[in-house]
Amino acid sequence: MKPVRSLARIMLSGIFVVSGANTLKNPGRVLPVAKPLTDRAAPMIQSLHPRIPTDTETLIRANAATQLVGGLMLASGRFARPAALVLAGTLVPTTLAGHPFWSSDDPVQRNHNQIHFLKNLGLFGGLLLAAADTGGKPGLRWRAGHRISHSRRSVQRAVRTARRETKIAVRSAATGRRLPG
Rank of each mutant, 00 (worst) to 15 (best):
T90L: 03
I115T: 12
D105G: 15
I10R: 07
Q67K: 14
V86F: 12
A64S: 10
G14R: 09
A162N: 04
A65R: 00
H49G: 02
S6M: 04
L24V: 09
S172T: 13
N113D: 15
G136I: 04
L140V: 03
A158F: 05
K25D: 11
S76M: 09
W142M: 03
P180V: 06
F79Y: 14
T54E: 00
A65S: 13
L128V: 15
A162M: 09
N113P: 01
P180T: 10
H99C: 05
L179G: 07
L128W: 09
A174E: 10
S104Q: 15
R157D: 05
S172D: 06
A34M: 15
G89L: 13
T95W: 07
H146S: 09
A41D: 02
V86R: 02
A64P: 04
R171W: 04
V108F: 12
I15T: 15
P3W: 00
H150S: 04
L96C: 02
G28T: 05
G145Y: 00
P27K: 01
S103N: 12
R160Y: 07
F16G: 02
A80E: 12
R147P: 00
A173W: 05
T134G: 14
A144I: 11
V33C: 01
R153E: 07
P43A: 05
S104V: 12
P36I: 02
G122C: 12
A97V: 13
T161R: 15
L59V: 12
L96S: 04
P36G: 01
F117V: 01
R147W: 05
K35N: 05
P180S: 10
L72T: 07
R5M: 02
G89N: 06
I45E: 05
G176F: 03
I115S: 06
R178L: 12
L87H: 09
P138F: 08
T134Y: 01
P43N: 06
A162C: 06
A97G: 14
